[in-house]
Each structure stands twice: as C-alpha cells, then as structure tokens.
C-alpha cells in the first residue's frame, strides 16, 4: 500500500465526509482549541466531564481531512474514558504520529492516522485536536 492509500484509507475518508462527533455540547465543562496559522486548520473541542470521566465529546472546526478526521476519531475515542486515560491516549497518539512508533492497541481506529508520521508537514494537522484536548484538560502543550 502506498503512503497515500495508507493515509487516506477508507476510515479517514469517511470520517471527513460523514463525521460522527461533529457538533457542540450545550453544557461543556471543559473546552480547548487549536489553530495552525500556517494552513488555517482549526479545531474547537467540547468535553463534558462527570465524576472524572468524559461523558461526552464533540468538536467543531475546519481544515484538511487529517485534522478533522483526527478530531472526530479523538472525540469518539475519549468518550467514556477517565481524564487520566484520555491524556494517556494523547501521549500514545503523539508517539505514533510524531515519533513514528507502531500504534498502541488502545488507539484502535486512530491507527488509521499512523501514516502521518511519514509526512512531517502533516503531523501538525493530526495533533491539532490532541493539543486542544490537553489544553481542555489542563495539561498545557
């Protein structure tokens, strides 16, 4: 599989066209945002944390397939996780796309974005939502 096929596999493609978690929350307890001024990618993340658990996650934003699919997959992945688990997931995601480590099993569908590691100019697109997550949960980037 070529790098293009790897990166733009069905999953990323579908999430961009038919996102599952795009939207806002009426009563978020935590929000975070991120922008790539160089390319105009933008993500706003809304979380509802109850008893240390992320009960709901939504995002809004605009930008390339990588940044938006990453946000959609993130929102789905962190729902039901504790804050600590979500932050741990962010570390594993970054290890995969920034350092090029093989995807940790917990990443699940997020492994679809592993190919980004081979495209240095796109890494920032993939991590945008994750920085927003860390900001929202108070772990500054």
């Amino acid at each position: 599989m070529g790098i293009l096929e790897e990166l733009y596999q069905e999953l990323v493609l579908t999430r961009y066209k038919a996102p599952k978690k795009r939207g806002t929350l009426p009563d978020p307890t935590h929000t975070g945002g991120g922008k790539n001024p160089a390319c105009g990618d933008q993500v706003e993340l809304y979380l509802k944390v109850e008893d240390g658990k992320i009960a709901a996650a939504r995002y809004q934003g605009e930008g390339c397939a990588v940044s938006q699919a990453s946000a959609d997959l993130l929102a789905e992945a962190v729902e039901g996780k504790t804050v600590a688990e979500a932050l741990e997931l962010a570390k594993k995601f970054k290890a995969m796309v920034v350092e090029g480590r093989p995807p940790a099993p917990e990443l699940g569908d997020l492994a679809a974005l592993a190919g980004v590691a081979k495209l240095p100019s796109r890494v920032k697109c993939a991590t945008l939502a994750w920085h927003a997550l860390e900001e929202a949960l108070g772990e500054g980037v």
């Binding site: 070529g2 790098i3 293009l4 990166l7 733009y8 390319c39 990618d41 930008g63 390339c64 397939a65 990588v66 495209l119 100019s121 796109r122 697109c125």
Partner: peptide
Amino acid sequence: GLHAHDLATFLAE
C-alpha cells in the same frame, strides 16, 4: 470539498 493540504500531499507524493 477537498482541502488544499490533502491535494498538496497527493502532489508531493
């Protein structure tokens, strides 16, 4: 519907 960066990545490859 297709972001400029995705197109540029395709061309870069």
